[in-house]
Design a protein around this nucleic acid. Structure first.
Lengths: 205, 205, 205, 205
DNA sequence: GATGAATGAGATTTCATTCAT
DNA sequence: TATGAATGAAATCTCATTCAT
């Protein structure tokens, strides 16, 4: 009502920004303490407010994780879709997907950790059916790249692509658990070394 | 049926056996539902008894995970110690450690899953300080093998051994999440393919 | 059935003796830990058996206190009745009642402690109505002696006999909480000093 | 109603006041039913709320008794310390301590009852070590007054001061069990009669 | 937007008691 | 007589959620 309240900071945009802030805080806490064993009060403490106050912004604890994961998955798939739409050969597609994965981790580290740790459990709830869908689609995408690579003669045919998929997936995503943005190695440097290792092995030739 | 059997079935041996049975059941449930979100009643249901009855055998929910993890770690280190005591070169030590890891997973799959998922959270409790200790020792052991391998010229020197350690650790242990004893591939076959991949890479040469 | 079982130790007398032993043990434990917060298992531990085994001898935890208190009260009233039947004057009756009280404490210390601590709470249970009855009768007896003493001119008339009764009762019975049979002072010596104090005061004359 | 009042009613002051109210309620219930056999729900009922709601204000049932007893002991020692700091002779110090004891009972009757009934049991818990400390200090204070009185020739030398201490302590504090603020006798009147009795005895001279 | 107090369902835990052996 | 295992009711405690202010 006062002129001040007309500021861009006091409109719907400001509200969305506050939501995003709170979600970032919640994601940190869920990632470090685990979703199930984090209390709403712990999230509120981290956000500098009281437990009940969070309910002005969110319906429930569940809707917080929901939004955290949805935002992350949407962003991740946008990046992946751009790669697959680029029409690269199998080897370059593989490289780019790996690189994009590490960049996504860089942007959404806490969300990735939550995704890794809680997906299986949350997916039993219909509300989170999209997690299972995403996983299925994810697997299909990677297997298609790997199988194409084998056909193109660039990837070894004596390895089980199902196994390669699993090992690749696990290592890449688990990196979110130890990766620190301010650490010794950048996301791109980690991706580079990771690819050197996976593609050519750790043994001297 | 034999007289011997009847003896062992009563007394302390029978009691220990019952404990072990119940712990195996609890481990399955904790592994599949997550420790924090598993209720004592779910464990009891799975064991075919009422919630309170578990407390005849165990002090608390916490002491169940404690025993599950301790037993697993003890067994794992026995296997690792046997390998490192064998005086093999770096490459063979690496191979053997990987193989032992998959065999340990084969014997203690649920415990490994719990270890992966809950360690970080449980370790904040002094009672579980041994988890942190074990992790430290684990890291030291793997780094020593990798560094030795680089010095012996068998492992590439252009890769960060810290990174190799992490990637190796993650893939090996995460296998516990999807490995099934009755699946298509045996533990040893998985270990074989895994090493082929890690040692020589997935690219054709 | 065997000749051995014919021993006097294996008849009803032996059974009663075992009961008495167990009750003595239970009384000790109830007295030191409090009835409500003592578990049946603690009693059993103290008796060198398992929790369930006590139920061969007693119907319930409640029936244990019941028997402990009944036995004690019966014995105490026998002593009191002997005193009041002796036809002594007020002062001598008072002295004798005090002396008998300390002797009863000497014989039933744990029961007296239980009586002091748990009576009020137990008395809400109809089964223990006799506790209230006993207390009423107790009060009447003491007040009659005190009032008689005032009338006979041996006790001061300027003090409220209700108060004297309470103070006397409290000190005497609370002595059970600290009195030890093997302590520095015998029950009779304590009674003597106690009477010197109550009758003549602690001030020099 | 005054503006000042409205201020104090909100914020931390109001919270402290509510705590105090709830503690007073809890103390009544613990005193009348016994700490161990009082359920949190009974306390909540008496306070007009549900069981869980108490945990908004207090950590645990234990922390309730803790606060009840601490507050009481702090207040009691403030009164005692004022007396001992006044430099009175033994007889007057004794009189004043007795009088303060009855006044403390008047202010903290339920807390005193709890203290009497539960101290021994609670003191086994390290959290309540201060109960033992207080008791020790209490004993030292009384004995010092009594011994000084004997030396000054005002108290009889033929009585064991240890016994006098115990009898005095017991009678005074047990008064909390039957004393009612709205009863026939005021705290000071009870103290007066009590001292007449203890100092000069109940026998006519 | 946020607070503070409460709710109430559900979790872990305790423990008197039962019962087959 | 005693054991060992289990029961089941009840207790303490936790926590997501609500709501008046």
């Amino acid at each position: 009502m006062s002129p001040r309240r007309r500021d861009s900071e006091s409109t719907a945009a400001a509200r969305a920004e506050r939501r995003a802030e709170l979600l970032a805080t919640a994601a940190e806490v869920f990632a470090s303490r685990g979703y199930a064993s984090t209390t709403v009060r712990e999230v509120a403490d981290a956000a500098g407010m009281l437990g009940g106050s969070l309910y002005y912004h969110f319906d429930s604890k569940e809707s917080m994780v929901d939004e955290i994961l949805s935002v992350f998955l949407t962003d991740m798939w946008a990046a992946y879709d751009a790669v697959t739409a680029a029409g690269l050969d199998a080897r370059e597609t593989f490289r780019s997907l790996i690189a994009e994965s590490f960049r996504t981790i860089d942007r959404h580290r806490p969300a990735v950790v939550i995704y890794q740790n809680e997906s299986k459990h949350l997916a039993t709830n219909p509300r989170f059916a999209y997690l299972t869908d995403s996983q299925r689609r994810f697997r299909a995408m990677w297997l298609s790249v790997l199988d194409r690579g084998v056909m193109e003669g660039v990837f070894r045919a004596d390895l089980d692509t199902g196994l390669i998929y699993r090992f690749t997936r696990d290592t890449v995503w688990l990196a979110a658990s130890w990766y620190r943005r301010d650490g010794r190695l950048s996301a791109d440097e980690i991706a580079r070394q990771y690819m050197a290792m996976v593609l050519d092995g750790i043994v001297t030739t």
